[in-house]
């Protein structure tokens, strides 16, 4: 699905990701864990193609078979990569419908987009007024994350990254998000970035990756997450 080869990323001349090699497979759920500042979010942004990052010459990112390291973020998104932000920004005067209509122009009919948004809002328990209001404006942490998930679904994303999925999210919202992911695993790959294993109680990851100082230092199954919960990162 997504392949990372010798991925090194610098942010304002400071190397944050130091040579990561990993392949994410289809239909799987991955948890990316690690202490603060280990480079988890940077890795997510790098996959999505943050424009102000610089990559080492040997760095390569593959989507399925094609290299996407040189593609702009919107081109990567069009292929099916979706990044759910840690703190989704609020957009003045732009509704989630306007955003998605534009993102899907020429792909999906606006009316179909509108209908899908309404259906999903119902399913994900997103309040009607949040749909008609400027995106993320006056929304709680949990509501913002649910709106992110809604976008991922409408855009029919294939590789969905949730940055800090359980930070500032109430337990009800977390359950709804987790439930959706558990039920919709076919043809989708999820990468959940998290500090705690709170979400992992509701979605069982196939693989747990641990990052430290810009490298993936350990890979295991969900038991690794439990171990971290008990003993912290220091024991690794």
């Amino acid at each position: 699905m997504i392949g990372l080869k010798n991925l090194s990323v610098s942010v304002s001349n400071k190397e944050i990701i130091k040579g990561v090699n990993y392949s994410f497979e289809k239909n799987k759920v991955y948890a990316l864990m690690g202490p603060n500042g280990s480079g988890k979010s940077t890795l997510a942004y790098a996959i999505a193609g943050h424009p102000s990052y610089s990559y080492s010459k040997k760095s390569k990112i593959f989507f399925e078979k094609s290299e996407i390291s040189k593609l702009l973020p919107d081109k990567r998104a069009k292929k099916g990569i979706f990044l759910s932000f840690q703190n989704p920004l609020s957009l003045n005067g732009v509704t989630v419908f306007q955003l998605l209509r534009l993102a899907l122009s020429g792909i999906k009919e606006p009316l179909a987009v509108k209908k899908q948004i309404d259906v999903l809002a119902d399913k994900l328990h997103i309040k009607k007024e949040l749909i008609s209001r400027s995106l993320n404006e006056g929304a709680s942490g949990g509501e913002k994350k649910k709106l992110e998930l809604l976008q991922a679904i409408v855009l029919d994303a294939k590789f969905i990254i949730f940055d800090e999925i359980d930070t500032g999210v109430d337990i009800d919202a977390l359950k709804i998000i987790a439930e959706y992911m558990s039920k919709n695993r076919k043809n989708k790959t999820y990468l959940l970035i998290t500090h705690y294993n709170r979400i992992l109680k509701y979605v069982k990851p196939d693989k747990v990756l641990v990052m430290s100082s810009g490298k993936i230092v350990k890979v295991g199954d969900y038991k690794l997450a439990e171990e971290i919960e008990k003993n912290g990162y220091k024991s690794l």
Binding site: A48, P51, L72, P73, D74, I81, F82, L91, Q98, Q151
Partner: peptide
């Protein structure tokens, strides 16, 4: 970047934000 990560080109994103 937020809008681009949804598949909207940079110039379209600028337009969307200005219209908003």
């Amino acid at each position: 970047f937020y809008l681009q990560s949804r598949g909207i080109s940079k110039s379209e994103a600028e337009g969307l934000l200005v219209n908003g």
